[in-house]
């Protein structure tokens, strides 16, 4: 399934409530916005109203953090129902989630937690992705997570490589992929693999969206452990990974994430113009893969 629906999306920004007015009024070409749907799954009031105002002026993507697709339990039915209602209401350009878990039984853990990539885990994630796609009546894009734990430690080990796991997930479910190049950089640094090799092996045809963000060193463990903190500008190495992927596969919607030390809207716009430049450069060099 080619990600054709999103070809009009250029460099987008994670939408921050304090930037609502500027976001609504900005007319930058290719601009779009992404939100965590969890913050908008409410019955009514100002949050939904504002999101609809933004949607009236810009494409909007929903980037979920709590479906717990790699969890042992099926997706929370009530949550999925609310998400489906928001998708119907907003008609988002993209819907995405993470290759991670965040719930056991009725308890939510507000993080994107790691699991051992086994064949059983692949079957479980594929089942959950299919359930979500059936309920939403559209494909969702699955994001590669940041890793902090080694591939093998005691009885902890992965029987599947992450890129192979994601490629197989695409095969089995028809899902799309969200390539977070900052997560690739963070994980490659922490686990000692080649970020370039990971990017080169990534199934480019399935990538519907790319994330860029800043990272920082762990406050206790230091520069040996990078944290996907979203609280700093995008590192040069991360821009280089974006360029590497786009040079190979052509432009895709790129989203700049920022959650901590959030600067002014114009500063974020300026930063995301690097992504717009990379997309424009390769749009000229390489014809679009698919024309709707």
């Amino acid at each position: 399934m080619a990600p054709t629906a999103a070809l009009h999306l250029g460099a987008g920004l994670a939408l921050k409530p304090q930037h609502f007015n500027e976001a609504r009024d900005c007319r930058d070409s290719g601009l779009w916005f992404e939100v965590h749907p969890e913050n908008y799954l409410v019955d009514g009031g100002p949050r939904l109203h504002w999101l609809e105002v933004i949607r009236a002026h810009h494409p909007v993507a929903l980037h979920g953090v709590s479906l717990s697709l790699a969890g042992e339990d099926p997706p929370d039915a009530a949550h999925l129902q609310r998400l489906a209602a928001l998708v119907r209401r907003l008609q988002p350009a993209l819907v995405s989630e993470h290759l991670a878990w965040s719930r056991t039984g009725s308890h939510y853990l507000p993080d994107l937690l790691p699991f051992q990539r086994s064949t059983a885990a692949l079957q479980r994630v594929a089942r959950h992705v299919a359930q979500v796609q059936d309920r939403l009546q559209r494909p969702i894009a699955i994001e590669n997570p940041s890793h902090y734990l080694p591939d093998a430690f005691g009885d902890w080990h992965h029987s599947w490589d992450e890129v192979d796991f994601l490629a197989e997930l695409v095969q089995r479910t028809g899902c799309q992929l969200l390539l977070d190049v900052n997560n690739v950089q963070v994980s490659a640094h922490n686990l000692g693999f080649s970020a370039n090799a990971y990017i080169d092996r990534f199934p480019g045809h399935a990538v519907a969206e790319i994330h860029v963000a800043g990272h920082s060193s762990d406050p206790l463990l230091g520069a040996g452990l990078l944290i996907d903190s979203h609280d700093a500008p995008v590192a040069p190495a991360v821009w280089a990974l974006l360029n590497r992927f786009v040079a190979r596969h052509g432009p895709r919607p790129v989203l700049l994430e920022r959650d901590g030390n959030v600067p002014a809207f114009d500063t974020l716009r300026q930063e995301s113009s690097t992504a717009a430049d990379i997309l424009a450069h390769h749009a000229v060099a390489l014809p679009l893969e698919v024309t709707p």
Binding site: L109, P110, Y148, L221
Partner: peptide, 24 residues
Amino acid sequence: APAITRHPAFAVYRNTVLKGCVDA
């Protein structure tokens, strides 16, 4: 508890989960 929970980097998850709750 599983051995992996005693790896120093496992603290990242413990801290992030608790911080997420406290911040909320």
